Simulated scan of single mutants.
Amino acid sequence: MKKIWLTFILVGFVIGLSACSSATSEEKRKLVFGATVPYSDMLKEGVVPILEKKGYSVEVKEFNDYVQPNIALDSGDLDANLFQHKVYLENFNKEKGLELIDVVSVPTAPIGIYSVQYGSLDEIKEGSTVAIANDPTNLARGLTVLRDAGLLKLAEEINPVTVTVKDIEDNPKNLKFHEVDAAQLPRSLESVDLAAVNGNFAVAAGLDLTTAIYRDQIPDEIQNRIVVRDGDKDQQFVKDIIESVESKEFLQVIDKHFQGFHKPKWMEE
């Protein structure tokens, strides 16, 4: 009698394990991405269709800030996100004690200097007004692109993620800075001489990225990346995401719908 009961227990245990395994497998066929605009559109148009062909069900959740997508990923509410570059990710991990990793870089909308008044950098007059973002992350990017355009000089020993106007060492054209909400930068062009606008906000406002009088060249560490939890790096769904991004189909979507985006080195090779 004991042997019979033991057999039932073992069979039940095996069935239970099988059920758990099936549930885990099924769960991983349902992926949730977090992204900001326009990267949510990039996922929907260029990545999701490929993953669906591979048998996944994919949901894309849009965020309007640069904090919650990482918090949600770490907590397990997301399986991956797309909105940040490597420098930001490394700083975020350090500050929050997280273990998130980037797995593949994607074409990135460059921050650009836009102007209604001027058609080139050479035309910018002394004392011109410049709109820059008022939040730390976008402010830093705005100042660094103004530096790269030769309009100002920043202190050499700076953290590229935390740069502020206090780090300006030389301002040869005596530019006057106006800090506004990053999403409002495109609208500010009506009241200032030029503005340093992040690519995502430029796209959202309908600006043509190719009309900027200067566009950030975006070094590799500033290219946006798809990010996952470190513990998932060897999971099949992560491998499938990478394969989707590196596909010819994804490149075709980029060339057709995301002109002006700076492609990562691997895509240009």
Rank of each mutant, 00 (worst) to 15 (best):
K176M: 14
V145I: 15
V145K: 00
G206L: 02
K173G: 06
V228A: 03
E169M: 13
A212W: 00
R147H: 14
D216K: 01
E243W: 01
G199Y: 03
K233Q: 11
A212H: 04
A195E: 02
L151C: 12
Q184P: 07
S128N: 09
E157P: 11
S191I: 13
E169D: 05
P219N: 12
A212Q: 04
A149P: 15
F177S: 01
L207K: 04
A133L: 07
T137D: 12
N171A: 07
V228Y: 02
V197E: 01
S188V: 05
L251D: 06
N200G: 15
A196W: 03
L251T: 09
A196N: 12
A149S: 10
N159F: 04
P160W: 09
E249K: 13
E249C: 08
L146V: 04
V161S: 11
G150E: 10
P172A: 11
K125M: 05
D135K: 09
R147D: 07
I241E: 00
D148G: 04
A131I: 14
L194P: 10
E221D: 10
P136F: 09
L189R: 05
P219I: 07
N174M: 03
T144M: 13
P186M: 04
E126Y: 09
A195V: 10
N200F: 12
A182M: 07
K239E: 10
L146I: 06
K233N: 09
V192G: 06
S191D: 06
V145Y: 00
I158Q: 13
T162H: 06
V197R: 00
L152Q: 03
V130E: 08
T129H: 11
F237G: 02
K248H: 05
A131M: 15
L209S: 11
V228F: 01
L194S: 01
I132N: 06
A212L: 11
A205C: 04
V161E: 15
V130A: 11
Y214W: 03
F250R: 04
I222F: 14
N159T: 08
L139E: 15
I168F: 01
A195W: 02
I132D: 03
V228C: 02
K173S: 09
D167K: 13
K173F: 09
L146G: 12
K248D: 14
R229I: 00
P219Y: 07
A140K: 09
R215S: 12
N200Q: 14
D148R: 06
E246R: 06
N171S: 06
A131D: 15
S247T: 03
R229L: 00
L251Y: 06
K239H: 14
V163F: 08
N174H: 08
T129M: 08
D193A: 09
T164E: 04
G206N: 01
G231Q: 06
D232N: 05
F177Q: 01
E249V: 10
A182Q: 15
Q184N: 13
Q252F: 10
A149D: 11
E190Q: 12
P219M: 05
A140S: 08
R229A: 00
K125L: 09
L146P: 13
